[in-house]
Design a protein around this nucleic acid. Structure first.
Lengths: 145, 145
DNA sequence: CTTGAAAGGATCTAAGG
DNA sequence: CCTTAGATCCTTTCAAG
């Protein structure tokens, strides 16, 4: 991983579908050279995947909430969340809280159902998201383009 | 948005770089037909973007934490987080907590620095992530393939 | 690493149902 | 809205430097 790889990763974070040609222009290399670097980054699992962000409202998930659990049965809670169709992310954490779940759901009714079910495994504290942002790109050094 | 669009979105969530040809095979249409649907989904902002997930350790961010803020100056905190190079996500929430920040940072020292700075804008409660998962794909109805 | 060329895919365009 | 067919562009691979 050198400075050129870092620039490649930076561009890929912003746009997974950039062409090798464009990427090559960014880093001042040829397209075959960049393609080989990207391939190696994939093989080393430094690039973990390419995914598409879909508008949550379009997926009928108008309500996003972060649910914090104290003293929960983490194993069962983890299983429950993993199988729940509205759960986006979940984290086992060390701190005041023991488990944190991000959920995107259709309505307050479906949120209530989730909470009721989750209460079997711990004590939830629900925080509904009013605004926020995600997917801020990271760079190793803070090189700006 | 019909059932075919939903299938397209489902596949794109799993792999942003799938070809129109492959996607067409999934939904039993021709490649140009699928390409046009994808283009419309992009124009309607139902597809919000194509991103690459990079391994955090490779980016020198071994520590991930979720920091919860109570009674904070949300506007200034938001500005601070937005400009911080290690912040991945932040949310203004309604609940017991008023602001939640996800940060990926190099070490306990850099985490400490973040907390010290963030304390100017609110009262943080730091939860270090032990394990977790993200990017669970969503579907409108729970159609499995 | 480069350039350049050739082969294979993917995408785009156009014509038509 | 769809299909098929052709043209064009991109990527990939290989050569040679």
């Amino acid at each position: 991983m050198d400075a050129i790889d870092e620039q490649i990763l930076r561009q890929l974070q912003l746009n997974a579908k950039i062409s090798m040609k464009e990427l090559a222009a960014f880093v001042h290399l040829s397209a075959p050279a960049v393609a080989e670097r990207v391939k190696k980054l994939e093989e080393q699992n430094i690039i973990e995947g390419y995914y598409t962000k879909i508008n949550l409202i379009s997926l009928n998930r108008s309500i996003v909430a972060l649910v914090l659990f104290k003293s929960s049965d983490c194993k069962k809670l983890s299983q429950f969340c993993h199988s729940h169709p509205d759960v986006l992310e979940c984290y086992r954490v060390a701190g005041e809280i023991s488990y944190i779940v991000k959920i995107a759901t259709a309505s307050v009714e479906t949120l209530e159902t989730f909470i009721d079910q989750a209460m079997l495994y711990g004590t939830p504290s629900t925080n509904i998201v009013l605004s926020g942002y995600e997917n801020k790109p990271l760079s190793l050094n803070n090189i700006m383009d």
